[in-house]
């Protein structure tokens, strides 16, 4: 999974440059999810994004959660799925369900 490792390297570089960073990782998927478990999205405090956890459908919502975690330091486990109204709002239209773990890069 070299693509997810490159995301980590990018996150580390942002962090080394002094920016708060959080990392989101797909930890479980059901149905037709575009990115497999292990896929990563790094988010910086200034709003930079690297990598992906979906086809672009939920990245905005994940970035919002990432910013909370950057501030609080508390990890979050996010659920997205078609039965979840929030996920429907953010547009996970592919019909898949997934769980995303969000942690701060301390």
């Amino acid at each position: 999974m070299s693509d997810s490792e490159d995301v980590l390297a990018t996150a580390a570089a942002w962090r080394a440059a002094g920016e708060p960073v959080a990392i989101a990782t797909v930890v479980e998927t059901w149905g037709s999810s575009p990115r497999p478990a292990g896929s990563r999205l790094a988010v910086s405090a200034s709003g930079r994004l690297a990598g992906s956890v979906s086809g672009g459908c939920i990245e905005g919502a994940v970035a919002d959660a990432a910013k909370q975690t950057m501030t609080s330091g508390t990890p979050q486990l996010l659920d997205f799925g078609i039965s979840d109204e929030r996920a429907w709002e953010v547009g996970l239209a592919c019909g898949g369900k997934l769980k995303v773990f969000v942690e701060k890069l301390s």
Binding site: L8, V27, P75
Partner: peptide, 29 residues
């Protein structure tokens, strides 16, 4: 993720050594 875990992941990658990252989802350990 702590700087120590990140550094260990990067060291394993540089050494081309397979490692698995185990995360407890309740608290991120």
């Amino acid at each position: 993720m702590t700087p120590e875990v990140l550094a260990a992941l990067e060291a394993a990658k540089a050494a081309k050594r397979p490692v698995a990252l185990l995360t407890r989802l309740s608290d991120g350990a």
